[in-house]
Design a binder for these strands. Sequence first.
DNA 1: CGAAGAGTTGATCCAAGTCAAACGTTGTGG
DNA 2: CCACAACGTTTGACTTGGATCAACTCTTCG
Lengths: 210, 210
Amino acid sequence: MLHSGENLFWEGERFDSFCTVLDGWLFSYRLFGDGRRQILNLLFPGDVVGSWIGEAVAHCSVQALTPSKLCVLPQLSQMDLATRFPELAIRYGETIHNQLVRSECRVASLGRQSARQRIAHFILDLCCRLNVSHGKPLQAAIPMPLTQEDIADFLGLTNVTVCRILGDFRTENLIRIAGHELQVRDPEQLAEICEYDWLECSSASAEAWI
Amino acid sequence: MLHSGENLFWEGERFDSFCTVLDGWLFSYRLFGDGRRQILNLLFPGDVVGSWIGEAVAHCSVQALTPSKLCVLPQLSQMDLATRFPELAIRYGETIHNQLVRSECRVASLGRQSARQRIAHFILDLCCRLNVSHGKPLQAAIPMPLTQEDIADFLGLTNVTVCRILGDFRTENLIRIAGHELQVRDPEQLAEICEYDWLECSSASAEAWI
DNA sequence: CGAAGAGTTGATCCAAGTCAAACGTTGTGG
DNA sequence: CCACAACGTTTGACTTGGATCAACTCTTCG
């Protein structure tokens, strides 16, 4: 269990465990010397944290965004894992491969898309991961515990820019924001803005690991 | 075998094979509607291309930068792979995990670093992957088949900016460029520029797969 | 109620993009 | 061996998207 704002581990720290998220939202991030922060990834139930091969030193920090439950898997030797639990090894490969695809899509977005495109991309990707993979319609409202500053740090922008563009999207009736929920109203047009091709919709589920 | 400039596969194409690079440099990339290109990853001997679980549709294209040799592994079912060749499954997990770490470091760089920092980061990372992992000193000259435009597309910049900053680095005596070779002359200062922490130096080798 | 955090808005600035021209370098074919 | 074409690099002038700075408002919650 982690409270919101609590860290699972810090960049540079030794972290050999291998966890999966059972419940809650977390994010991994890096801090720079001048205080800038880049959020690397959002972690939802079913995602893995850490490496099964046990990286000596964490390359990023991980923090809980909402109260979160994690399952720490017993640390086996690699060989044990692969030979005694081959289905676990397969699932690990799948999950980490999904994360890699997603990460590379983010590289493309950060490298070559405008602020407007990045934000559209972010919204659609989030809906895909949360709604579509759980069988809900894309337009279903999703919880939004991220502040605008979090979104900015995720997309390599500033909170001011995020605020302005979310405002635009709202007046263009592309999205609706109420309380801490976000709803996509016009996925087609959002997809057109950012050239989203609905490929990136694979996600994980927590049940698979239990 | 692939000639330089030749594509192994294209984004959106079906590609179920699972290859490893034996020789040469390749890169994966995405194109946007207006012709912009983002290079996602550089692939060196020892890296894997594609997924062992066979992604239905490739999320990016892969092109050879230099004449390249690839080893296409026979496509086994996942279970076969994990149970009959557990050491292969482990190696796959390691490699793909390394790629993920590297990709996330790039997200941080693209999201929060200046052009100068990104280029310094790129140079050091390249040297680490090529020299350090092969036991050579960091300062050893490395081949540089990438054009400045390639580097720009890798870092989310323009060729003009890359040209200007490489020029700066040269006059500051941080690097030396001769023909198609690049040599780092002052790794310390480059590391200071981009807050490089030498963590990201794990790499793969081709031999391990044979 | 009051304080702290988050969101909104306007004014200004700058790093990097864009456009354009000139200069090198490489390779090919007459 | 030269010519010239294709491609890459370099440099200068100008533009711009998003950052920065700063004030103000709106929530939330003890």
